[in-house]
Amino acid sequence: MGMVVKSVTSFGRSGLSDWLVQRVSGVVLLAYFLVVGGYLVCEGSTMDYAQWSAFFASTFMRVFSTAAVLSVIAHAWIGLWAVSTDYLTERMMGGKGLVLRLAFQAASAVVLFTYLVWGIQILWS
């Protein structure tokens, strides 16, 4: 039916999947910060760089950190996409809404992609 809004730039192209990804990534990030935060609280006062580095070098933490990076990317994309489609619209600002929105989305994409590559590089090289 013609009424359905097709959103080629949305993350999962379905409202439900975006919504679910947002929730799951949120949970992953929360867990990640609890683990890292918990480690800092327990060991932080006496910790040196070697310890900190070793903590992240374990396979578990590498996988976990990768999941967190991916979650940041997905979470941020969905959030920023929603912001852009709320405020940067033809309804609000006429013809330049489309240009601004696509520019904003492109810029967000570049930044997030950079974070992704950078994050993986740090974690896996």
């Binding site: 359905v4 809004v5 379905s14 409202g15 975006d18 919504w19």
Partner: peptide
């Protein structure tokens, strides 16, 4: 199926 887009419900 007609509600499962990013706008109709999920805004």
């Amino acid at each position: 199926s007609e509600l499962d887009d990013p706008f109709s419900v999920f805004r």
